[in-house]
Every structure is written in structure tokens, then in C-alpha cells.
């Protein structure tokens, strides 16, 4: 699983290593570290945000190791959705039941519609929607998008996707 964590370190040398060592010891894979050395919390500690991948059963062990070595763990969150995407939909979105379109994606279990902005200029005119979709991975996101295009096609809606900016 991918985990994001907010930590607070004491403002003395060697603390960052202390925070990262247990992740490495438990064979976690560190993805990012944001170290705000110039910032201090009201408690005089330094906030650090880390993202890493680790076996889920090792997470509790990791947290107690960190706490034992004096690193405070302020927040632990699972990053379930790693891929994000925005699409535009144009047509008679509401009349063709947008809820049903969203449900189709949500019911996959690997992708969710996490944002929707709708613009309806006039009755009988096509409306426009901006949809944000999150998915657990790239393959899943592509699957969710083809599902969306399929539904849109049946409802005579135009789907506009972002260009591929990452080349394979």
C-alpha cells in the first residue's frame, strides 16, 4: 500500500535519518520527502511529509518504531488513488441521467468520480461538465475512461480527454 505521513521532528541534527531509517529497515519504498527545515510548528518541531510504499501489515510496527525513537507521527493516510484525470463532457448530460454515468465509474471499485462542475446555459441547449476521476493505477484509469466513453457514446455525449503527456 501507498502511505502518506505527516511527521514532526525535533530541531536537532540527525532527526531526519531517524525518521527514514525504520522505513528502509522494514523494506518500504520511499517515494517523496518534503522537509520544511525553515518552518517550525508552535511546538518548536519541524514538519516533514513523506510518501512511501510498504506492506500493510508492517505499518503498525513502523509507527511504533517511529514513536519509540522520538519522532511524532501526526497523520497517517492511505493513498488509495494514485492516478488523477480530468475530462470534459458535452451534451444533454442531465437529461441523460448523469448520476447513472457517475455510478458506472464508482461501481468499478478501482475508480471514482471525485469532482463534478456543471454548466447549463439554457434549457434545451447542451450542457458542459468537468469531471475529475481518480483511480488506483494507470491501467485502471484508462479502463474507467473507456467505460465513460462507452456510456457517453450510448447517450450521444462528447467526451474530451487530456492529451497523453507522458510518453511510453
Amino acid at each position: 500500500m501507498r502511505v502518506s505521513m505527516d511527521l514532526e521532528l525535533k530541531d536537532i541534527p540527525g532527526q531526519l535519518l531517524l525518521a527514514l531509517q525504520p522505513i528502509s529497515d522494514l523494506k518500504g519504498n520511499l517515494i517523496s520527502v518534503v522537509h520544511h527545515h525553515e518552518k517550525h510548528t508552535p511546538r518548536g518541531t519541524i514538519p516533514v511529509q513523506i510518501v512511501f510504499e510498504i506492506d500493510s501489515e508492517k505499518l503498525d510496527n513502523l509507527i511504533s518504531r517511529l514513536e519509540d525513537s522520538g519522532v511524532s507521527v501526526v497523520r497517517v493516510g492511505e493513498e488509495r488513488f494514485l492516478e488523477h484525470c480530468a475530462v470534459i463532457i458535452i451534451g444533454h448530460i442531465v437529461h441523460t441521467n448523469i448520476q447513472d454515468t457517475i455510478d458506472k465509474i464508482d461501481s468499478t471499485g478501482f475508480a471514482e468520480v471525485v469532482g463534478l462542475t456543471l454548466s447549463m446555459p439554457r434549457v434545451n441547449q447542451p450542457s458542459s461538465a468537468f469531471l475529475k476521476i481518480d483511480a488506483t493505477g494507470k491501467k485502471e484509469l484508462n479502463e474507467a475512461l473507456s467505460l465513460l466513453k462507452n456510456v457517453a457514446n450510448k447517450k450521444d455525449l462528447l467526451v474530451i480527454e487530456p492529451i497523453e503527456t507522458q510518453f511510453i
Binding site: 480530468a86 470534459i88 454548466s119 450542457s127 458542459s128 461538465a129 468537468f130 474530451i160 492529451i163
Partner: peptide, 26 residues
């Protein structure tokens, strides 16, 4: 697919999120 169905509202929604709408060949 052409550009005839594109609405200005959709372009604004996309622009507010940092995108411009273009006809792309690939």
C-alpha cells in the same frame, strides 16, 4: 471527431482547471 459540438462553457470549465481545448491529431 470535429469541433462543432464544443461549447464555450466547457472550454471555460477546462481553462479554470488549467487546460485549453484543442483539436489534436495523433
Amino acid at each position: 471527431v470535429g469541433i462543432t459540438k464544443i461549447t464555450p462553457e466547457s472550454m471555460l470549465l477546462a481553462y479554470n482547471d488549467g487546460y485549453v481545448t484543442k483539436l489534436i491529431g495523433e
